[in-house]
Structures are given as C-alpha cells and as structure tokens.
Design a protein around this nucleic acid. Sequence first.
DNA 1: ACTCCTTTGTTGTAAATACAACAGACTTGT
DNA 2: ACAAGTCTGTTGTATTTACAACAAAGGAGT
Lengths: 219, 219
Amino acid sequence: MQKYVDTLKRSQLFYGVGDSEIVAMLNCLQAKMLIFKKGDYIFREGERIDHITVLVEGKILVQHDDFWGNRNIVNVIRVGEMFGEAYVAPESGALLNDVIAEEDSSVIFFDIKRILTVCSTACRFHSMVVQNLFFSISEKNRSLVQKIGHMSKRSTRAKLLSYLSDEAKRHNSNRFTIPFSRQQLADFLCVDRSAMSNELCKMRDEGLLKFDKNEFILL
Amino acid sequence: MQKYVDTLKRSQLFYGVGDSEIVAMLNCLQAKMLIFKKGDYIFREGERIDHITVLVEGKILVQHDDFWGNRNIVNVIRVGEMFGEAYVAPESGALLNDVIAEEDSSVIFFDIKRILTVCSTACRFHSMVVQNLFFSISEKNRSLVQKIGHMSKRSTRAKLLSYLSDEAKRHNSNRFTIPFSRQQLADFLCVDRSAMSNELCKMRDEGLLKFDKNEFILL
DNA sequence: ACTCCTTTGTTGTAAATACAACAGACTTGT
DNA sequence: ACAAGTCTGTTGTATTTACAACAAAGGAGT
C-alpha cells in the first residue's frame, strides 16, 4: 500500500493531507487494499456496504444491466476517485448498481465508521478528510446531474453534442480523449450503438468534429 | 422562523437535534428565511452559491430548459429536504440547473462556511449537523442514480414502469400519489407528454394499473 | 504471417417516438 | 353561472430509433 501514498496524496479523499499523515491514517483507519482483475466484480447490485473505496490503479465502471440485456453505464471511476460514499449512510439501503473493474485495478477500502468517528489518537487531518468526503460526494453529485443533462436530450445527435462539448469544457481543449469504447459510450448515453456510430460519422462528414479511436476534436 | 422549528426537527439537516439546540443553531449559523411565490426563481443556472437551503414550506423543482424548449425536471425538493449541498464546495463551479418554486414556498438559507467551521461557542450538535449534511447529499446521490435508472430504459412504457414501481416501493404500498402533473412526469422521464399519456392509458386498459389524477394503483 | 476475436462502420426494415392539432374535463377568477 | 385558461386524453403523420445482419479494420496470440 505504501507505493500508493503519492496517488493517495492526489486523491479526492486525502487532498491537502501530507505524506506522513497519510501513512499514519492508513494505520489509524485500518485501510485494506484488494486487487481485482479486469472484469471482476468489486461490488454487486443489492449488496450492502460499510466501506468506502479509493481507486489507486486501473479503471472502474459503475453499471447496471436490465433483463432485456441493455447495459447502462452510470459512472466511470478513475485513479484517485472514490466509490461507495453514497451507500454507507445508516438508511441508505442496498447498492443500485454493479461495480466492475474495467482494467486490472487496485482498490483501498476504508471502514466508514472509523472515518466518521473522531479518533482518540492524534489524527490532525481527520476532520479535513471528512470535509473532503463531503466535497467528493458533491462532485459526484454534479457529474450525475451532468449525465442526466446529456440523457435528457431527445435525439442521439443532441446527446452526443451535449456529452462531447462537456468533455471539451472539462479538458479546457477542443481535443480530448474519452474513457469509453463506442459500445460503452452508447451504454453511457443510453442509445443504440450502431445508430450512434452512424450519427458520429454523419457529424464528421458535416465537418462538426473529427475523431480517431477515442480521441475527439471538435471543430 | 420560530414556527418552523418543528419542521426543521424533522428535516434531513437537523435530524437528531433537539428543539432548543435548533433555536440556538439558527442563531449561531445566522440562518435567514426567504419567501417565494409560485413560479419564482430561487436560484438560476450559472449562479454561484455559498449557502445551502432547507425547504420548510411548499415545493421546489430543480429543472433545466434547453433551447429547443424541452424541459428536464431533474429533482423535486419537498418540505424538510435541502438544496445546494452539491454546489458549495470550493471548486464546484456554477449551478447546472434552475431552482424554481412550484408552490408558494419558504426557504431557510445557511452559510456553508459557518456550517463547516466548528464554532467557538458551545454548539454540541454541530458535528452531527455536518454528518447529516453528508448523509443528506448521499441520499440525493442515490435518488439521482434512480432517476438515471428510469431514464436509461429504452421505451416510454419501461420508463413508466421503472418509475412507478420505484414509487410503490418507496411508499411501501401499491397505492400512492406522485408529485407531478402529466407534463411534469413527462419532463422528469424525458419523454413526450402525449406519447406518455397514451402509454399510460394503454397500460390501464391492459389492467396493469389504475390512476385518478396523481394517484396511482399498481395491480 | 496467420487465425481468431473484438471493435467499428454501414445499411435496410420494423417499431417506437415526437410533434401537431384538437376535444373534453376540470379549475380559477369574476 | 359564466368565461378563460389549463390539463389530460386521443389520433394521424413524419421522423427517429432500435435491431439485425454483415463488412471492414484493428489487435492479440501463436
């Protein structure tokens, strides 16, 4: 776990906390690391959890498959981001989605009780971590609202434009790489892959954008 | 503001805090109440805020209109619930939606700095309020994920069934009242009102459900 | 270099949806 | 009680989407 202290320092949860404090807190919070292979389930829909997690290596998808076989990719978790904050409240109920390793991934687990309870020993940065937890979940909240904004558009083209222009804004550049394959992007925007592919190519032919694999340039 | 102490006691933010403590904290946190008429904007998209709000009377809609005139109702805020938690973090950026009074409403505003800063005087319940803030935003997070679950369904009928069965589960009853008019429900599920109305009546004729105004019974 | 497998683009068709237009029921205010 | 306005249900049509099936391109492993 020691090798990931640098990653943790740049994570949402430990933002503003120094190296030595992080090492101390890993102990104080009794953190545990687990390694998952691509395709492994980290959590399953319906599970109840009492740990929050920080991804220190790999990529994770939060997704849901209905019984018609349609997949809905709810969120992507990247290195330094968290998962589980929304499901550790006393009355939160069971997970609404599956959480799956999209690449080989390393995940650190923290017992929520230990984070919310002020520890008796001297963890100076404990309250900062609690505040970071709040800011982190509020950021996730906003990203869900943005996703809803994309999905709310009526046509496939409008959904694509909404998503792509948002990504451009997020990267402060009209040139950016998306974290999705075509099928995954379709599952994220909840549209048909072939129709989306078709629409993307039409938009390219009309000179609205260029793309190569997962790299897009808006014009 | 005093007349709403009972309401605040049952609110997300002050859950577990006693009457006298609430009165003390209204002072300590320098809370301010504003009254809005039906149709008034409480916040506008693009605004930056540093207060969280608790609704003590009325009903509020969080919504977004795009330039094709399509309205997307992102969330409903009912008495006792909050708005703004997701936008008071230092780097949160501007509001992504409009916040509008759907009925005449009374709203109490709290400066986020005063909530996150432990006060020098004796507010014993201050840390409980911070924890409530975290639980409250995590609940909102889950309700957004549920809404995404409804919207992700491909057909209007599947969207309706997803939403209605969720409401039934939430009310622990197959008979319940929804907080939306038909147009609002369509805006919430992001479908065409007439197509949705049509689908609802088909489902009624097939014996799947009954409804009268906003009251639904699933069969 | 070869095969196997995955991903992406392409096309046609059937099905679903958005849109417009309207009628009837219900509200609200005078 | 009346008029004006809103909400809901209904229908037809044009548009859009989902689905299936396939071809081409790219990658992984032998």
